[in-house]
Design a protein around this nucleic acid. Structure first.
Length: 831
DNA sequence: TTTTGTGCCTAG
DNA sequence: TCAGCTAGGCACAAAA
């Protein structure tokens, strides 16, 4: 651990026109390594450039600029060989890349293999394997050096392997951990897309530019000097970003802590599933008690009895509640059930009335009747008709494991409280540890119920856990409903939670009653079952099962409520931001003002903006995960996001989305009666100059925004469609005048595609119309006279340089890229 | 027009 | 080879 080093690399390669780099055609121009030494937390950057022989010139222009070492190689092979040497001497434990398969290390390996260099093998820490199938020619050509036969490097190391391809990266280096950072980020932060820019914004709170490969090429081609320097600086900054993100999230320490708690190795924490973690802990404990686990085959697992029990999910009384609603839930309900009722593989005596005799889970067992008779006062009967022995007879392994996990977690939490505020590192470690314990406690039930891939599931045991939980919740609900003093009613509950309506009570009273309920229900249940009083909603909407939203208060002193939504569009990623924003805003207005007139004027204002095109396209971009190759052949067509991805692949095979990558799309006007899948395009398609496409405002309003709002405000008797139909329609007069003044009036009208919008009256809103705007093309600030850019952006050298360099006809396209480089307006935004 | 199946994402 | 669970809502398109 002491010599721990992170290596991070970004590759920039040549590419042809708009295409992404392809190792079969495009040479590597720049490789940048950011190396962090865990001992002193220093970061060093090494840059390798392909260029002319004049090394001194390269150095002179680059030295000291970003504090990195730069080496220039005329030949690509030399560059790669030097890279391999550098990696071997740095000898990092972990190699990180943003996208390991098509970019970064994967690209390097593929390109190296193309040039006859076995890169992955040569940076491996393990000795070359005694190959099972040695190349036949090797015996005859003994002079051949190992790296001269790199073909298997590609086939074995960068091959298309379903599992490692979709879940890790498929790129392996012996003795080193290879991290595919974007995929790890999916589990760390919830985002609409997992580009480096989006993650840097979320994690580091920093806007970073996205410069297309094509632009990098142009910069690089200017040779030693400013342009090439900018290219190198950009590539290096991307490499360092990887390290910064990892450090900000404390990824390495947290993963190490998980590895320590579960007793598994570092990479398995990231690459293996929950079963592996549960087993690691369970088997270790089981062995100390002289138990061995059974190993049923796939057939056995598949043929175990079906599970019959379901958690309780109440149908909520859908309504707007202006009275306080309490939210209480059982803490770690399933682990509590396992402990309280001694539920375990090792304590189960089977069903009282078995449908098939002597079957228990994946195996067979029938309890001896005499034994059962002897134990008759020491048995536990679960609500699904399964017998278990009491802990006095035999303490189960799973209950013991969970008891230890839960009590350790309490100890860790207490230890955290005793820490001085200065002990931040220890604080983080202990916090990671208690989270790991919580995590493992909650998936232990899943282990017993793992049907598809389970290594040791047990249907009866899983059913007992669920049904005990269900009975506990049902008992609590009727207890609350029947209590004579509270006048309370449970209006919703899901698995382990209760929503209690207190009609006509104040929030203060609600907090008092909430505490009472929690302590009485806890007292009426066996240890360690605990009902926790979580919060008071005041007011709230209950919509359907698993969908509700309210203003929440966690203690009586709290004055500012928290907007708390579950399951609705504001927290979902399968709608566009416009829907989420409008829904949240109107809910807040409703909660704060309790006045539908104000809600109505808000949504009408927004609809007007949308219809007049005064909106940011960003708010209308959908982004959904795409898993090409998994779609049903029976279905009529692919989902919209998959359509967009497939289209992109037609012109550039390297644009294929990674498995489960989120692919963005917008909905545009189409032929009347067109299906949705015929009206989706990549968002960039809308921004191109002369684009015939137009955002389908009516689709967004009538198919996305209105239904979402209707589900909420319909509960108050509102008809959103009526609101929309009776709303005065905005005219696009300002825009139309401007266009006709430019002589652009109807040039493209024949190519306008029309869909929902039956009247072909709308004009094309194109980027060049904004040239007549009184706003800066880049940042939107007001400008003087006929200026295109505001004074701030004009002061930005990078912007001006690129504008002046480009010919006027190119200007329009460049503007998309300019927004990314502008230091004033923060960069990555759309225009 | 209603029902059914697929896909996606979330709650717990 | 490798893979915790179920319930549930909703959009969409095709079949009934």
């Amino acid at each position: 651990y002491s010599s721990f080093v992170l290596g991070s690399r970004v590759v920039f390669a040549e590419s042809r026109a708009e295409l992404r780099p392809d190792p079969r055609f495009d040479a590597i121009n720049v490789v940048s390594l950011a190396v962090e030494d865990d001992g002193d937390n220093t970061v060093e950057v090494c840059v390798l450039i392909r260029g002319n022989n004049d090394k001194s010139q390269g150095r002179r222009n680059l030295d000291g600029v970003i504090g990195c070492s730069v080496d220039v190689f005329p030949e690509e092979r030399d560059l790669l060989n030097h890279l391999i040497d550098a990696l071997c001497s740095i000898d990092p434990d972990i190699l990180v890349g943003w996208e390991i398969q098509l970019g970064s290390l994967g690209f390097l390996a593929e390109r190296a293999a193309y040039l006859g260099i076995g890169l992955l093998k040569r940076i491996s820490r393990t000795l070359p394997h005694e190959s099972k199938h040695p190349p036949k020619n090797l015996a005859h050509e003994s002079s051949q050096v190992p790296e001269a036969s790199p073909a298997d490097d590609v086939i074995m190391d960068v091959s298309e392997n379903d599992w490692s391809h979709t879940h890790a990266s498929g790129v392996h280096v012996g003795g080193r951990i290879v991290l595919n950072l974007w995929r790890l980020m999916r589990g760390e932060v919830k985002l609409n897309n997992y580009s480096l820019e989006a993650v840097a914004d979320e994690v580091l709170r920093r806007k970073v530019p996205l410069v297309p490969n094509k632009t990098l090429n142009r910069w690089f081609a200017t040779g030693p000097g400013r342009g090439r320097h900018r290219c190198i600086e950009y590539v290096s900054s991307r490499a360092m970003l990887n390290l910064e993100i990892i450090n900000q999230l404390d990824l390495v320490n947290r993963t190490s802590e998980l590895a320590r708690v579960f007793g598994i190795d570092f990479f398995s924490v990231l690459s293996r599933g929950s079963q592996f973690r549960v087993e690691s802990m369970l088997l270790r404990l089981a062995h100390t008690q002289n138990y061995l686990a059974i190993s049923p085959g796939n057939q056995q697992v598949a043929s175990q009895p079906a599970m019959e029990c379901m958690p309780l999910v109440m149908e909520p009384e859908s309504a707007f509640y202006s009275d306080p609603v309490l939210v209480l839930d059982f803490q770690s309900l399933y682990p509590s059930m396992i402990i309280a009722y001694n539920l375990c593989y090792s304590t189960c005596l089977g069903k009282v009335f078995p449908s098939k005799s002597s079957v228990l889970g994946v195996s067979s067992y029938s309890a001896d009747p005499h034994t059962i008779a002897d134990l008759k006062n020491q048995l536990i009967l679960t609500p699904n008709g399964v017998l278990y022995v009491q802990p006095e007879v035999r303490k189960g392994v799973v209950p013991r494991l969970l008891e230890e996990i839960l009590s350790t977690r309490i100890m860790v939490k207490q230890a955290m409280k005793k820490l001085a505020p200065s002990q931040k590192v220890l604080q983080k470690i202990l916090n990671a540890r208690q989270l790991a314990l919580k995590l493992i406690a909650n998936v232990t039930y899943g282990y017993t119920a793992a049907g598809f891939s389970g290594r040791m599931p047990c249907a009866e045991l899983a059913d007992s856990i669920v049904q005990c939980g269900r009975r506990t919740l049902e008992t609590a609900i009727s207890f609350v409903n029947q209590h004579p003093l509270w006048n309370a009613r449970v209006v919703y509950g899901d698995t382990d939670s209760m929503f209690v309506l207190l009609k006509g009570r104040s929030r203060e009273e609600a907090f008092r009653i909430g505490k009472e309920i929690a302590s009485l229900v806890t007292a009426s249940n066996p240890d360690p079952v605990t009902l926790k009083f979580e919060k008071v909603y005041h007011p709230c909407f209950l919509l359907t099962k698993k969908r509700y939203v309210g203003y929440s208060y966690e203690n009586p002193e709290q004055n500012e409520p928290i907007f708390d939504a579950k399951g609705i569009e504001t927290v979902r990623r399968d709608t566009c931001p416009a829907v989420a924003k409008m829904l949240e805003r109107s809910l807040r207005i409703m909660f704060e003002e309790q006045d539908l007139v104000k809600v109505k004027s808000y949504v009408e204002r927004q609809w007007t903006r949308i219809l007049s095109g005064k909106v940011s396209i960003q708010d209308f971009i959908f982004a959904k995960e795409v898993r090409l190759g998994t779609y049903s052949a029976r279905a009529s067509s692919l989902p919209p996001a998959a359509i967009v991805a497939t289209k992109a692949m037609l012109s550039d095979p390297r644009a294929e989305p990674r498995y489960a990558e989120r692919v963005p799309y917008v909905v545009i006007h189409g032929e009347p009666g067109a299906r949705l899948v015929d009206m989706v395009i990549n968002p960039y398609g809308l921004l191109e100059v002369g684009s015939p496409y137009r955002l389908n405002e009516l689709y967004y309003i009538t198919k996305q925004i209105i239904p979402a709002l209707q589900r909420v405000f319909g509960l108050l008797g509102v008809n959103l469609n009526k609101w929309f139909n009776e709303m005065p329609r905005p005219t696009r007069s300002t825009l139309a005048k401007r266009q006709s003044a430019l002589g652009h009036g109807s040039r493209d009208s024949s190519s306008i595609r029309l869909g929902w919008n039956k009247k072909p009256s709308a004009k094309v809103a194109r980027i060049d119309t904004y040239y007549m705007s009184s706003h800066c093309t880049i940042c939107g600030d007001t400008v003087q006279g006929s200026e295109i850019f505001c004074s701030h952006c004009l002061k930005n050298e990078a912007v001006v340089a690129t504008v002046v360099a480009g010919r006027t006809s190119k200007l329009e396209r460049e503007i998309q890229h300019l927004a990314a480089v502008c230091g004033h307006c923060g960069g990555a935004d759309w225009i």
